[in-house]
Design a protein around this nucleic acid. Sequence first.
DNA 1: ATGAAAGCGCTAACAA
DNA 2: TTGTTAGCGCTTTCAT
Lengths: 345, 345
Amino acid sequence: MLPKPVTMTQVARETGLSRQTVGLALGERAHLLKPETRERVLRAASTLGYRRSGSAVAMRTGRTNCFALLLSTIGSRSILPRWLVDGIQQAMREHDLHLAVESLPDEQLTSEGHVPKLLREVACDGLLINYNAQVPQRMIDLIGEYVLPAIWLNSKQDADCVYPDDYAAAEKLTQRLIGLGHQRIAYVDYTHSAHEVPWHYSGIDRLAAYEQVMMDAGLSPQRLGSREIREQGSIWQHMAEHMKRDDRPTAVIGYCGMEARACLHGGLASGLAVPRDLSVTCFDNSSDQGIGIDIACCIIPDAIVGKAGVEMLQQKVNQPNKLLSPHRIELQFKEADTLDVPPTL
Amino acid sequence: MLPKPVTMTQVARETGLSRQTVGLALGERAHLLKPETRERVLRAASTLGYRRSGSAVAMRTGRTNCFALLLSTIGSRSILPRWLVDGIQQAMREHDLHLAVESLPDEQLTSEGHVPKLLREVACDGLLINYNAQVPQRMIDLIGEYVLPAIWLNSKQDADCVYPDDYAAAEKLTQRLIGLGHQRIAYVDYTHSAHEVPWHYSGIDRLAAYEQVMMDAGLSPQRLGSREIREQGSIWQHMAEHMKRDDRPTAVIGYCGMEARACLHGGLASGLAVPRDLSVTCFDNSSDQGIGIDIACCIIPDAIVGKAGVEMLQQKVNQPNKLLSPHRIELQFKEADTLDVPPTL
DNA sequence: ATGAAAGCGCTAACAA
DNA sequence: TTGTTAGCGCTTTCAT
């Protein structure tokens, strides 16, 4: 079926050298060889189409040079932003590692007996776990059982995790709005339920920081939205209503882009001009096209989280027993034309 | 550093059986063994925490049981929808394969000399190429050079590719709008340039099908938008302008969700109610949160493309020389409240 | 029903 | 500067 790959032995035969010499010429310590010999080997290897066997190396060295990224197929539990992948890859490339990805359907995962291939086999040196919220207990158990170095991405854990510092970002953002003169600032979240604890820590931290800063400034926090309202399919009408009230907010902080866009739309429906009458901000990763309007927001540093995760995992692989303290990544604020001083009311 | 994984030999020692017997008990043909022996092996393996070595198996069998997904780091060249990943994974799980992912920065790729790790090494049995548009020549060259079975995802090629049937979908969608009684139907695309050929085949096919159906029905196609306008940052104002004209469209087909949302927003700005005054449709993958409004659209079947890609690649691995004819996947239409009969003008 | 022997492609330690 | 020897963990074939 598959054509048999060319091996070192064949390159050795071709050049009349020994297998080991060929190995040397192709490896890190190629400079130990006579340049002429090395050249000869490289040429022959290239002509024959030699590719080294990852499995053979892995077997010999005990290292697969592969990290695995674990995901839930449930989108809300395992957010997979494009830039996270790219950030991971960039760091991996620098270490000459490669990435395996496995998405686990939680139903299967939960069913005793099913173990993901990447855990069942010796196939990678460590795990990047991208279970951000509602991590199934069995996942945690499995990771404990199959002792592999692991780093949690975008998730708050006691150790070995890296995540965006949403609390600090929300603080800064709220302070910024207050600094501009806004007093009636609303926090809008149609993503989480009004009755349950938010899935993801960011749902807690952004709100908490906002409330704290508002209170510290002697202002009263105002929370809008909830998943329940979204499920009635009337987000922007809901926003539009609010925007007609006398005590309407002059600025909003959306949990993410969706909330911000709903505010833009609802605001427009109520005859408000952005940013003259209403400043709109949110948290978002910039890959989002949204509505074609550039919104002032705190950028979730997906790429940096990915890179940091890889670096941490690399450390963990070398010192598996050392716990790494949680690594928070700062968010940058992106200016845009949805932000202004408050209107004179 | 890394604790040494438990091997068959150790399980054999533990049970007093030979390595081969253990291998048998753990493999496909376990039924050839006395149930009692098999039990004993399985128990011991589980106690010791045995995991079989993927590399050793790969080396022995010549199969890595791994497919690789190739991406460009340039988002527009390599769209990576979440559901594509999940679709791929689902099919992979069924075949007990695992997935490696590599994103290639085009600059590095183009620079002669740099070869992606997954191509440079024997590390996978086949490639899923997710270069959808503007495929760099060097990528094509490399794939030709490192002869590996490969399937192109979401890209129109002469053979060995799978992609959504955008042409047929756009036909059906346009016909549907005409069937509702619409006559002034606009096609909106702020994603592609007005002056260049669209990057992705869908930019060509959706427009072409729309125009064809319109002409066949004796209606005149009307195209709105262009990347140039988007770059001026005034999409929705642009839409709003259009919607004030006497000959404004009563229905729009957006290239993707962004266009549809811009129409909603621009329409609102011009005092139009959706769907009473304006029907809005588009092409999109449903993972998009957008603005919190459910838009009637043709759903891009990412998951199915992924699954089909894996199945095709599996075939290709078994018959590397057989060319597979292009595989088109049908799009389903998702109804929503943005669609109605035209207003009486 | 179980065991023995061979070898996949590679690297590390040592020898020449 | 180059070659020798050994063995990583597994499967396959053949023998018992």
